[in-house]
């Protein structure tokens, strides 16, 4: 039972947020914590791009303490609350939280362990048991290549691939998609944090929030036709993904604007940023905009001219999917 004081505090926080901002159409809107907006009624979603000039050590590697600060800054600007409140409201101590990283490209261009460690620290501080945190990707090998240490057990934070636990037996279907889903998402986790990488993708144009969820399904290779449209949007409609994802933290510490998804150092840049949102469509739209801006600066064709405009983002926002907004006019993009 909640104390009267706690109840009032919580109600005021939620109520305040609701008054300040219109609820996003996204399925990722967090129950009990709505993103405020300074331009009430006009902006549907907020995306924060947080940057630090001092993010790297002298060895050009991310500094763990600086990454932690960057994460706090990003989320505090997204929710306009202090970091502690945010994590406590997003996650309950009884939650089992899955951190979906993207490690396909190896050490050079995978979700940084420094960022994941920062997230883990905040989750533990919010009361989540460390063994109830699962860092996961498609395969153990992907995680190992990216510098993670595998562990499955009750003594510490867990880290393993789908290959350890397999897939659900029932086919999950939406639109064009028919897939088995990893048991990490369907059976083990009660909440998910999506931790993608910001990068170009040679087939579907962009790999960020929505594309990272291809790691949930058993047959991602079947869904790259037609520049991934509508497949990427359809995967994100699957209820276990929609209902359990509470936050998207896109690692843009090192980003790549061409030659993805593998790591191509000649097309990477140190963006030293995180892009955070609860609206996955808005986040992807902003990420696309970042990649296009960089491509233009580097005198490359736009993704549309290159024949791989990520149309799936618009599909995800359409009246059928309604996963979020892709209209930059309706996205409040905050740079800090």
């Amino acid at each position: 039972m909640e104390k009267r004081r706690q109840f009032i505090k919580k109600t005021m926080l939620v109520g305040g947020a609701l008054l300040l901002g219109r609820r996003s159409a996204t399925a990722y809107a967090v129950p009990g914590l709505t993103i405020p907006s300074n331009t009430a009624g006009q902006k549907q979603s907020r995306v924060v791009i947080a940057h630090r000039n001092d993010l790297r050590t002298s060895q050009n590697l991310p500094d763990e303490a600086a990454v932690q600060k960057l994460l706090d800054t990003a989320l505090e600007n997204l929710f306009q609350q202090n970091s502690q409140n945010i994590w406590r409201y997003l996650f309950k101590p009884e939650d089992i939280v899955g951190l979906k990283v993207n490690c396909l490209a190896g050490k050079g261009l995978s979700t940084r362990p420094e960022l994941v460690n920062a997230v883990v620290e905040r989750l533990i501080a919010a009361g989540v048991n460390k063994s109830n945190i699962i860092i996961w990707d498609r395969h153990d090998n992907d995680l190992l290549r990216a510098g993670y240490t595998l562990y499955q057990g009750r003594q510490k934070v867990q880290c393993f691939g789908n290959n350890r636990v397999g897939f659900s037996q029932d086919i999950a279907e939406y639109g064009q998609i028919g897939s088995l889903l990893t048991r990490i998402v369907t059976e083990m986790c009660t909440a998910l944090i999506n931790l993608p990488i910001l990068k170009d993708h040679g087939i579907v144009g962009l790999s960020a929030g929505m594309k990272n969820n291809f790691g949930v399904i058993n047959n991602p290779n079947k869904y790259h036709d037609n520049i991934g449209d509508p497949f990427v949007a359809d995967v994100n409609m699957l209820p276990p993904i929609r209902n359990k994802t509470r936050l998207i933290i896109c690692d843009a510490i090192t980003a790549q604007y061409e030659g993805g998804p593998p790591f191509m150092p000649q097309w990477c840049w140190n963006m030293d940023s995180l892009v955070v949102a609860t609206d996955i469509v808005a986040l992807d739209q902003v990420c696309w905009d970042i990649v296009e801006t960089k491509r233009k600066a580097e005198k490359l064709f736009s993704l549309k001219q290159a024949g791989r405009e990520p149309r799936y983002i618009a599909t995800a926002a359409d009246q059928t999917h309604r996963l979020g907004t892709n209209d930059l006019e309706k996205i409040e993009c905050v740079r800090v």
């Binding site: 490209a105 190896g106 040679g202 087939i203 290779n221 079947k222 036709d225 998804p261 593998p262």
Partner: peptide
Amino acid sequence: CVIDDLERGYCG
């Protein structure tokens, strides 16, 4: 299928 490094074809 045109396949990037570390990716698989449609067949999987």
